[in-house]
């Protein structure tokens, strides 16, 4: 028994040390963010704080125009998540409920596309955006529009969701739709009234996951958006990096504020998030 107890204590010591080491970088950022710039300049960053302040957060909020960037992110992420789920569910429905010869190539097309590095497609994509009309831009181009960002997110993120949803839909007994078919329900009704409601768990999980992924994306906007005020928050964080003057305390506050919404989503929807991640691998 004592051996076991000792083992347990050892395990706790180990895990606690590891957990603290894991949190250290984030805690260091929190510590830095709460200290006045002058204090750290005078006494160094690793010093006992003379005072703590919220002013880094407030000035990052106003100086870097965070509210506007958050708004852009919402305008990209919400439609992005909804359309991705709709499209992915539609494709998943087709490949899982019918057997066409092109089912596997289609799944490959979506999933493999999702796994390509973003840089691989960026130049032609950007040229394409210059020539495709887009809504909501004075120039009439898809380039430099939030719609353009939404579409590339949808096209790029559909892969994983399709993969997950197709796996899930395969587990729904065919008898369910069969019965509806006998009742004369068309494909559209089968999809919207029978299959989609049954897919609520994976849809919730995917929605959580996609929100965080789209929120966290850094690359698309720095290439496809050229108006500073249209940047989503993650890409706009760079605005706090000065050319002549950099204030690390301010930067830390900005980085934490940028991370905050994803942390909130995570804590609120932890279960969905984790089940979302494991959905893809569950079937393995």
């Amino acid at each position: 028994m004592t051996v076991r107890l000792r083992g347990r204590i050892g395990l706790h010591v180990l895990l606690m040390a590891a957990a603290l080491a894991w949190l250290a970088p984030l805690l260091w950022a929190v510590f830095t963010a709460f200290r006045p710039y002058d204090d750290t300049q005078k006494h160094g960053y690793l010093s006992w704080p003379k005072s703590l302040t919220f002013s880094n957060f407030t000035s990052a909020w106003s100086q870097a125009q965070f509210p506007g960037y958050f708004r852009n992110t919402v305008l990209v992420a919400v439609p992005g998540v909804l359309i991705t789920l709709l499209f992915a569910a539609a494709v998943a429905f087709v490949v899982s409920r019918f057997s066409f010869w092109w089912n596997i190539p289609l799944l490959l097309l979506f999933t493999a596309g999702n796994l390509l590095p973003q840089q691989v497609i960026i130049t032609p994509l950007y040229r394409l955006y210059l020539d495709v009309p887009g809504l909501g831009s004075g120039s009439g181009k898809m380039y430099d529009t939030l719609l353009g960002l939404v579409l590339i997110h949808v096209a790029f993120q559909s892969g994983f969701s399709t993969f997950v949803l197709a796996n899930y839909m395969k587990t729904i007994p065919h008898e369910l739709t069969e019965a509806a078919l006998v009742d004369g329900a068309g494909v559209a009704r089968q999809f919207f009234q029978i299959i989609l409601p049954l897919c609520r768990p994976p849809l919730a999980a995917l929605a959580t996951l996609l929100s965080i992924w789209i929120y966290n994306d850094f690359f698309w906007a720095i290439v496809l958006i050229s108006t500073g005020s249209k940047m989503p928050i993650t890409s706009a964080l760079n605005n706090l990096v000065g050319n002549y003057f950099t204030n690390d305390n301010l930067l830390a506050a900005g980085a934490l504020m940028t991370a905050l919404p994803t942390l909130i989503i995570y804590f609120l929807l932890q279960r969905q998030f984790i089940s979302g991640l494991t959905l893809g691998s569950g079937k393995g």
Binding site: A18, A19, L20, W22, L23, L26, I212, Y215, N216, D217, F218, T234, S235, L237, A255, T258, A259, T262, L263, I265, Y266, F273, I274
Partner: peptide
């Protein structure tokens, strides 16, 4: 603790 970094964007 171990999972937090996964939620935060890689840029951050």
């Amino acid at each position: 603790a171990f999972f937090l970094p996964v939620v935060v964007s890689t840029a951050v």
